[in-house]
């Protein structure tokens, strides 16, 4: 008897809930989509760097935090929004130069694991530096995006969330154009394909790396603004950014569409799991749900949704 009621709780009741309160369900899904967009933005920066330099950049989360902190810090100093935005972009570009000059350049031909660990070091360096310069308390970020709520067909929506979704979409479109139609985009794809061949035809590897880290920094800034405006700028941003890793397992490490779809799946999945199944086990499963989902996914499709199967050569 107890077993039956357990089955009911796990496999029937949550779905009954979803169907009986469709509007609430829709709101849960929308909230998930919006979180998912944030994950996608972080994962996107990651994919850019991985594609162009083969570096598994653990520091992407810290870059999000650093970019947002810089923006807030400048604004607190009385710099107008637009100038502060430009300033933050400039700072991220300088960071990209520094990373290339002091780190990547010296780690060419090292094992992937060494590069990965170096970016963990970078994470701490950026974090410590950012907090030392800008302080470590939570900062409110207000760049003047409206955040009125309104109703469509009984579903509560927020202007800010729509704005976030919209700018995420625009960013992805711009990046797609950048990659496919500009000279530097073509060079980036060439480098991603084969470093040495790209160098042999005269593509300057160093410039490419700086560019791609700058672009990733810019993507980080956008992600940071979105997160920060919603929940304030603080250290926890970089932990949330770790969720980009399961997103990438789902989407495939080298795929831009993968990062986006993966982010949405994780965002929606963990919201639904938390709301409908979380109470059964005491809640707070959002912390690990994404990772476990990715782990299960690995068993069935290790290359990700959009990744390519790799032919190994000897």
């Amino acid at each position: 008897m107890e077993f039956i009621s357990f089955l009911n709780l796990v496999f029937v009741a949550p779905f009954v809930d979803m169907v009986s309160f469709p509007i609430f369900f829709a709101e849960v899904v929308i909230a998930g989509v919006l979180t998912g967009i944030m994950y996608s933005l972080v994962a996107l920066g990651f994919v850019l760097i991985f594609k162009a330099s083969g570096v598994f950049n653990f520091a992407q989360g810290a870059m999000v935090l650093f970019a947002a902190l810089t923006l807030v810090g400048l604004m607190e100093l009385g710099v107008p929004v637009l100038a502060a935005l430009l300033g933050a972009v400039a700072v991220m570009t300088v960071l990209a130069f520094a990373v290339e000059r002091f780190m990547l350049r010296h780690l060419i031909n090292q094992d992937d694991i060494i590069l990965f660990m170096a970016t963990i070091g970078l994470t701490f360096l950026i974090q410590g530096f950012g907090e030392m310069v800008w302080g470590s308390n939570v900062k409110a970020l207000d760049i003047g995006i409206p955040s009125e709520s309104f109703e469509v067909g009984g579903i509560l929506l927020n202007e800010f969330d729509l704005f976030a979704a919209g700018s995420g979409a625009v960013l992805v479109a711009v990046l797609a154009v950048f990659f496919h139609y500009t000279r530097i985009g073509r060079a980036l794809r060439a480098v991603a394909d084969d470093h040495q061949a790209a160098m042999a035809v005269g593509i300057p590897l160093k410039t490419i790396w700086v560019t791609v880290w700058s672009v990733a920094g810019f993507v980080g800034l956008v992600a940071g603004i979105m997160w920060g405006a919603k929940s304030g700028v603080q250290f926890s941003l970089s932990l949330i950014a770790l969720k980009a890793l399961p997103v990438l397992i789902l989407g495939g490490f080298t795929s831009v569409p993968g990062a986006i779809v993966g982010g949405l799946i994780i965002g929606v999945g963990e919201k639904i799991a938390e709301i409908y199944w979380g109470p059964l086990v005491g809640g707070a499963i959002e912390n690990w749900f994404a990772y476990m989902l990715a782990l299960v996914f690995l068993l069935f499709r290790p290359q990700g949704l959009f990744g390519e199967r790799i032919i190994e050569r000897v």
């Binding site: 963990i120 970078l122 974090q127 530096f129 030392m132």
Partner: peptide, 11 residues
Amino acid sequence: IEIMLFGSMII
């Protein structure tokens, strides 16, 4: 400073 030192020493 501690965090920064750890980070830079790793690199």
